[in-house]
């Protein structure tokens, strides 16, 4: 491929190839503080035109790689960063086998991790980003990596994908943070990627012991309830893209995980309220 970037994110390495210079240049800026990696990658992502001439005429980026879904829609060239991020997510979702993947965010303090899971739109990305100013190290936003062998949670500190009004809310608090380009008209509205704080990148390969599993819901009066191990187990199987393909390893890892952690569903009106509840719970 004409333009290539090799990058390491926590324990996972990616090789991203593009037929256009633009997306790679943007990615180099976004991933400026991540380790470069030109070794044998875990996964390859390809950003290519649908037809050869579409490199120049009405360019549209097809997301391809080691693992693909058949009819993914292409993105406009100025959303190349988003295409690359989606491509990396896809490789993880379909190809990751070393870790049990949980669709969740995670933060850490003193070697102990809190995992925040829930449906898209529940506010976990925003909350995880904001917890960074409240004494927590951001470990992961999209995918939490649970090691079946050790039961530890490994960081995967990708840039946090923030959408619409969350972008301004976070930008207001995290002054001086490093951001990707603002993409206004994506299929999901406005999207902008926030690079985790320096401590998150410095400790990108330091795992932590999970102690608390939260199911946060934003926009409701502060409230909390305990969640049974069975319910947590079932909800996490649905929040995992590779639970089934890991077979018995996945089952053992997940049963152990839900047994080890305190499990709580919290409703919260704002980040301060959530942070206060978390301080009491963990």
């Amino acid at each position: 491929m004409r333009y290539v970037l090799g990058v390491r994110i926590g324990p996972v390495t990616f090789r991203i190839g593009s037929d256009w210079q633009g997306p790679i240049a943007q990615l180099r800026t976004l991933y400026r503080d991540y380790p470069r990696d030109d070794g044998v990658p875990d996964f390859s992502v390809r950003l290519t035109p649908r037809r050869p001439w579409r490199r120049w005429i009405r360019p549209a980026v097809m997301i391809e790689g080691d693992f693909v879904i058949p009819d993914a829609a292409p993105l406009p060239l100025d959303q190349g960063v988003l295409a690359a991020e989606m491509g990396m997510n896809l490789q993880m979702a379909l190809g990751q086998r070393r870790f049990l993947l949980l669709h969740a965010a995670a933060v850490e303090r003193n070697g102990r991790a809190i995992v925040l899971t829930g449906e898209s739109g529940a506010g976990k990305s925003t909350l995880a980003a904001l917890l960074q100013t409240r004494g927590w190290r951001l470990m992961a936003d999209e995918f939490v990596l649970l090691d079946p062998a050790s039961g530890l949670v490994h960081p995967f500190p990708r840039p946090v994908s923030l959408k619409n009004s969350a972008i301004d809310v976070v930008a207001e608090e995290l002054t001086g943070a490093h951001w990707g380009p603002l993409m206004r008209d994506t299929p999901k509205g406005a999207i902008r990627h926030l690079v985790p704080a320096a401590d998150a990148l410095a400790a990108a390969e330091r795992p932590a012991r999970p102690v608390l599993l939260l199911f946060p819901r934003f926009g409701l009066p502060a409230d909390q309830r305990g969640v049974g191990a069975g319910e947590a187990f079932v909800r996490l199987t649905q929040a995992s893209t590779n639970y089934v393909v890991l077979g018995e390893r996945g089952f053992t890892a997940l049963t152990r995980f839900v047994g080890d952690v305190t499990r709580v569903a919290i409703d919260y009106p704002d980040a301060d309220a959530a942070a206060a509840m978390i301080e009491k719970l963990w």
Partner: peptide, 8 residues
Amino acid sequence: RVAAVLGD
């Protein structure tokens, strides 16, 4: 690295 990918 190769051993890790092939192990998976």
